[in-house]
Design a protein around this nucleic acid. Structure first.
Lengths: 338, 338
DNA sequence: ATGAAAGCGCTAACAT
DNA sequence: ATGTTAGCGCTTTCAT
């Protein structure tokens, strides 16, 4: 902390400029002097002050990423991918947690949102999208959004095709012979929830079926349990298949079904979404839709790099394809229950 | 990015010093001038350059936290708590992912590990503890470790009593009437794994029982499945209760048991550890050991604040108590199976 | 209450 | 190949 470039200069007998050159691998330093400097650096245990560097260079070498929670396999996958790709580009990653407590005002205190803290920002799945965009554009910080919810801006965005995911999930169920199929969605505030639902509806219509029920649930929660429990308690006929908007919801659905004595997938097939890490380990192993997290991270970094370098980026809206993972929680339709 | 304190000074007709005073809420500015400055700031959309501030102040106002993965409920809980408590102290949080690819050398490129990037660091559950400690001490960056693995240093540390957790989990099983009890542990490289195992062993001994089996598994993986599958395939007698070192392992154990036609907890009771978010939603709902994540984060921040302020901190080793969460995956012993 | 001047640690011209 | 000089944007004495 105390030792600075002057100390190194003094100790090595060189000027601070030469020290700076060594620090930045300038080719114009005599090897002998270079060594002197290197020795002094090691001896003094010196490392350059990055605030000073940032100040003079006008850039930080760090990319920020905002996230809302740390307990999600999809987020984790995206972040790991971002990390790798950033490293390839010589940037480091700083993650910031952004709380999204309902209608609480946008948290401008977010430490990342300073031009002198980061060179660019990746916004991962926020609900306060408009506020972020406004702030970031005002500050002229390059950024890219992942899992954007509004469709009508020209902001660089990477989404996974949720319509397709919902459609494929439903087609899977239909292909298995199911006819009475229900959907429990995420909050409609999320574009992804609305799109998955649309994919569901369209697949049903296409097959000449009408949805057994569609209920708005909540992503990442276990609302599936209470919803199914109510459904059962009311004496409604149980659909033979259910498309849950994510794996947490699916888990809740399955539990309530099992508690009521139904067999999954024997009596009812359930498909989730996201391929959470537990999906492959619960009993029955969850059939689900996997998102291409690696690609998402890769493209996010790519776009951001282009933005930072001022390249003209046209295809600023990217849509990737999800993938069906067929496991054990869905099976052929075997006749009606109840 | 371009507008600086000079621009504000010019526009407001004040000197940069006065602007600075306003920025820092100095009481010695005439209200009228204060307004002028505030207006100029707003009009120019100015926000102070934090690199310059850091440079001159010698401190950053940010606390760093290193973490290895983002898909863990315990980590998430700790981080959320850290975040809250940091905010109370006027600090912001920067998270950095530290990969721990086996024996890969310590990743010194971690962007947090600069005195001029953070004022202090929280190291969350790393395996490369010694490397971190050496680096951080060399750089004289205040830090605190959570879930430390070595017992023999004087580093500020917050752990949850894993011995007690293992002990309580096992006592729970014993109290339920079980006698043939097995344990699948985490990697012994983790102190927490060794301690949970010891708690298990001691509780068994105390009850005059001998462990049905103890197998080293791997935290956070679903090794429980293959381990139980092998056990069953070999025609061994199934223990009537199993203590899995974490919830992921427990999930694997339960699945293999169910696949083999056993009932949980009817035939075999299974207890996990950590109370992952899915634990309350799988079927059967997992009995587990919950860690006091809120307290962990709170104390971590507290200790770090003391360290930064140079206060003498004696009780630099803190040990918190875990809590048994009795749900559905464990039940009274009902006689032998097989 | 306000301002002038010095300097935080570094790099980028511009000499030499 | 190396050094001199001038800032990057801000805060902090020290005057006034």
């Amino acid at each position: 902390m105390k030792v600075n470039i002057f100390d190194v200069a003094k100790k090595s007998g060189m000027s601070i400029v030469t020290v700076s050159r060594v620090l930045n691998n300038a080719p114009t330093v005599r090897e002998k002097n270079r060594q002197k400097v290197l020795d002094a650096i090691k001896e003094l245990n010196y490392s350059p002050n990055s605030a000073a560097r940032t100040l003079v260079r006008g850039k930080t070498g760090v990319i920020g990423l905002t996230i809302t929670a740390l307990n999600d396999t999809v987020f984790d996958g995206v972040v790991q991918s971002v990390l790798e790709n950033l490293k390839l580009n010589g940037y480091v990653l700083a993650i910031s947690i952004a709380h999204e407590l309902g209608n609480e005002s946008f948290d401008a205190s977010n430490f990342l949102f300073h031009h002198d803290r980061v060179d660019g920002i990746i916004v991962l799945s926020t609900l306060q999208e408009e506020a972020y965009i406004a702030d970031l554009e005002r500050k002229k910080i390059p950024f890219v959004m992942i899992d954007s919810h509004s469709e009508h801006n020209n902001v660089p965005t990477i989404n996974v095709d949720n319509y397709l995911g919902g459609y494929e999930a439903t087609k899977h169920l239909i292909a298995l012979g199911h006819k009475r199929i229900a959907h429990i969605s995420g909050q409609y505030a999320f574009l992804s929830a609305r799109q998955r639902k649309e994919g569901f509806t369209d697949a049903m219509i296409e097959a000449g079926l009408s949805p057994s029920m569609i209920i708005e649930g909540e992503f990442g929660t276990y609302c599936g349990h209470s919803i199914m429990q109510n459904w059962i308690a009311q004496g409604n006929q149980i659909p033979s298949a259910i498309f849950a908007a994510d794996d947490m919801i699916a888990l809740g659905v399955i539990r309530s079904l099992m508690e009521a004595g139904y067999n999954v997938p024997g009596d009812v097939s359930v498909i989730g979404y996201d391929d959470q890490s537990f999906a492959n380990e619960v009993h029955p192993r969850l059939t689900t839709i996997r998102q291409p997290v690696g690609q998402v991270g890769e493209h996010a970094v790519k776009i951001l790099m282009d933005l930072i370098q001022g390249k003209q980026t046209k295809n600023t809206k990217l849509q990737l394809k999800p993938e069906l993972i067929f496991r054990e929680s869905t099976a052929k339709y075997k006749g009606d229950i109840n």
